[in-house]
Design a protein around this nucleic acid. Sequence first.
DNA 1: AATAAAACCGACTCGGCGGTCGGTTTAAGC
DNA 2: GCTTAAACCGACCGCCGAGTCGGTTTTATT
Lengths: 205, 205
Amino acid sequence: MQTTLKKRETMHLLCAKGLEVFHAKGYHNTSLDDILKELSLSKGAFYHHFRSKEDFFINIIQNLIVQKVYALLIEPLNTHDNPLPIIAESLENALEPGKGNEMAYGFMLNDFLTEFNKRNTEISRYLKDILNVWEVNLVSVLKRGKVDGHIARHVDCEGVATYIIASYLGMRSLLMGSSNRQLKYQYIQQLKQYFKIIAEQAPVI
Amino acid sequence: MQTTLKKRETMHLLCAKGLEVFHAKGYHNTSLDDILKELSLSKGAFYHHFRSKEDFFINIIQNLIVQKVYALLIEPLNTHDNPLPIIAESLENALEPGKGNEMAYGFMLNDFLTEFNKRNTEISRYLKDILNVWEVNLVSVLKRGKVDGHIARHVDCEGVATYIIASYLGMRSLLMGSSNRQLKYQYIQQLKQYFKIIAEQAPVI
DNA sequence: AATAAAACCGACTCGGCGGTCGGTTTAAGC
DNA sequence: GCTTAAACCGACCGCCGAGTCGGTTTTATT
């Protein structure tokens, strides 16, 4: 076995468990020992692979969180169908625990954003960057929808993207881990109502 | 001077400064000494008035945060006009720093909700209760709007209230202290778009 | 088998912070 | 002015958790 493989394996173990526990209990409320105990690893092992707790979390963001957001929220947008149902579906899917989304982390971006806001500007920036990428992709798919005649011409695509993101982040706050089907259903329903305004109206004959 | 007056005065000083600093830096990231230093008070004074840091924060919630939410988001609903513009206005107002809202705390509920979620169930409950009161009031004013003919009959008032709250909480995450006029404007615009679906359509003649 | 380097161990340090407590100041009431 | 209790002070305690470091085990190479 290559040493680099062993290294990668341990680092991945640490990152995966780290994300799980950080998301369950919050970054600042989780000690390294909490994570290490679950993996039967030592402080020494940890500091052999990571420079600090902060460095560790940045690794988690770049390897795991980014990929999750891409898989759940960005890649589904790459299609040339009507974007509105696709956006709705990706959001519904991302709120659903246990699909592409095994550990019911759901979409932890909002929790971490709030936790690090005003406390760690570097980590905040990494997290905000992810949101920005999502926003850019939403805007671009909305604009394409305009060209393709699925979305009304008067629509402010940036505004719509902002509103979608805001409502989604807020839902995460409301859901709070307790996966409440009722709330989820209400959210998706209202989102679809909102999309009616955005959609190109069938021309009156 | 009554001793009870002096007591109240000091407690209020502590609570006001406490809310300010907790909101600026986060509860867990703020030490009691941070607050006490700014007021030139001592640990002894603090523990003379409050049993613990947690007890202190519960005091802040019940005295200051609850009142702020009532003043900004609930009392404005008490009118018999068309509820939709009133809701939009209250939200716009609550995002605006420096109106009824001096210290740019804005609406800190979302930050604290996320910070305490899964870490302190008692405090979480207090915060969620505030959201619930807001939701109940939104629902009731929406239902009255239906009766008064301002809101379409098909509307799911609970769903709309949920969606309004979610988008508002999410906006708070996006704004992140950095009061970005552009984002705020986009949000209010899209909210008004959304309200078009909710509103009673002028009957076609 | 010998060697070296990577991986890992765990006792320790050190600072921060919530909370305590004996003592001091302030001020109300007689 | 004396008493008494509330208000307040600040040194101190104890715990927790990030980070350190000298030593040990595992693994790859020759």
